[in-house]
Design a protein around this nucleic acid. Sequence first.
DNA 1: GGAAGTAGGGAATACGTATTACCACGTTCT
DNA 2: AGAACGTGGTAATACGTATTCCCTACTTCC
Lengths: 348, 348
Amino acid sequence: MARRKSGTATSHDVARAANVSQALVSRAFTGNGRIAPKTRERILKAAEAVGWQPNALARSMVTGDAPLVAVITTRLNFDWRAQVLSRLLKAIQEWHLKPLLFYAESDAEVDRLLDEALGWRARGVIVTAGVVRENRAAAIIDKGQFLVALNRPANHDKGFSVATDNPLGGRMAAKLFLEEGRQRLLVLGGPQGSWAPSLRAEGFSQAAHEAGRQVAVWNNDTMSTEAGRACAGRLLALPSAQQPDAVFATNDAMALGFLDGLRGHRSIPGDIALIGFDNLPAAEWAPYRLTTFEQPLEEMMRRLVAHVDGHSEEQPLQRNGAREQCPGLIRCKPKLITRMTAGKTECP
Amino acid sequence: MARRKSGTATSHDVARAANVSQALVSRAFTGNGRIAPKTRERILKAAEAVGWQPNALARSMVTGDAPLVAVITTRLNFDWRAQVLSRLLKAIQEWHLKPLLFYAESDAEVDRLLDEALGWRARGVIVTAGVVRENRAAAIIDKGQFLVALNRPANHDKGFSVATDNPLGGRMAAKLFLEEGRQRLLVLGGPQGSWAPSLRAEGFSQAAHEAGRQVAVWNNDTMSTEAGRACAGRLLALPSAQQPDAVFATNDAMALGFLDGLRGHRSIPGDIALIGFDNLPAAEWAPYRLTTFEQPLEEMMRRLVAHVDGHSEEQPLQRNGAREQCPGLIRCKPKLITRMTAGKTECP
DNA sequence: GGAAGTAGGGAATACGTATTACCACGTTCT
DNA sequence: AGAACGTGGTAATACGTATTCCCTACTTCC
């Protein structure tokens, strides 16, 4: 199990090479104590020669603070996750923190991974996949670390959750359909108990109900393109009087598959209008031209990292107590990207 | 800068709570020394009560071995990178290592990030983006750490490179076109000096030349869908006598954009056959049905991690000295996925 | 010219854990 | 019964760095 015990140089080696004490080597690299510029220069050169640089582990131990952030993620198969992770990594890097990644195949693994993350004494944990059980959330926060959940509940009073304003997105989609005069509304939802997709569907349904329209909801366990294609088949099998003329897919993957399933059978947006969610790159490709919502990833990451760094004195844009049951929730407004599948005045 | 100095519990606290020495607490968690099962149980319970678990940093320091792997990555915008990273993270996790991610926006940043990675005394570095300069590679390997490059050269005698057999893929594509009787061949290449795309293009050209065919190569700086679409426009503007009837795109992103650019103007594969590389999820979507090469990611990751863990006694499948100038190169065979755009007997 | 102050640098210690050396005690074998 | 041995545990030390406290020598000011 144990590897090399001492192959690498230490600050003492550098000290010896530069004819100074080890303390000075440390000072040369941290810039904390008093040191003459000339000797500092000499030490840096000696370190270069020896091929040494500060051991981040030892440094973290003595300062009692490791510049690490744990990030819980999962398979990057749905593209959206890749978009999130990409910008998250960039934001973390710009904050001069190091992301330690934990890959959770299932929600059940999250607990164990959180424990491992705690073991590294990271500044905190960013959860982009899975569910954080309340007692685990408490364990993290009670130790003074932070907990940030992305598009999911933090499950703790002092937890922090950054999310798109999902209900608002749903309401906006419904509003657009109603303005177009659509009558029979359908939602392609996520799994039972999911957070973001359910809130999108709820917002949509609520706005539709207020306008006196009924809404059908079809839940999907995977939210994949395959699921979207299956929904298209299900729709085509319906008696024509019951067929929806407007569909709100709670993510783009489903919307794209749905479009493919309808291709050749229905005209879009003539027969059926469609709105997605996420604005994946593929949404603007020629065969799709999908009207969808862009989540303000830049803003979300900014707010997230701000909280990470203890700047949690943020003014939450909107807090609402009852419905989403998450005190530390920051919601960012989604932006409608209008393309061909909905919202355009029907062109010749 | 400095955070909490001592908020968290230590093994001494646990020892006190369980009425034992600190050494026993350590033994209870590592299972290394002799300890009575009964007291071990008691200690574990005490730790649970105190809310303590081993400090991975301190542990790494004393054992002289941190179970960390540095991973250099970049923007996950081209989907392919997401596929790679996803499986890489999974493989690393299964190996009980922790991936420390470094995000490089440009090749120039890689040097600095490698230094940071060295600072964490990781077991080694996995490079999936950017270029490793030779002196940096040497710095890593001379310290006894490993260096693995994915689909790029390791730039060091003892470096290790896991890649698809890119030239083979190119040759296979050319062979398929030739069997179909295609006459005018075009390659959508990558940037000047790129590694994998260039090898694919070279393999293709070489096989074509052996059969007496000429090959045009169009280089693309970004290899994005937009670049592919631009190439389609360029092709359509050509005099019809010069228009290619077979195109090998060195990645799927370009192939997909190329298809979109041709849509409505040319019939595929009647007028033009097309082969891509990577087998992105979108390649099998209804509007594309792209014939392409799947890279054996599972195998690549397995070999990669095997090397990471010091099992570098691997028998390289194929080593070739001269052409690719990389002694520790492992090449895995790409797999042709035949769909509509090439290789099918043209169906009614 | 002496006193006060300051800059530069060294010795020692702490961080939290794993591990080695060592000790006490009970067991087994002759 | 005495010796050899195994078991369960403790004290002390090392890992590599940051930091505190202290000392020396040099500057500056009256």
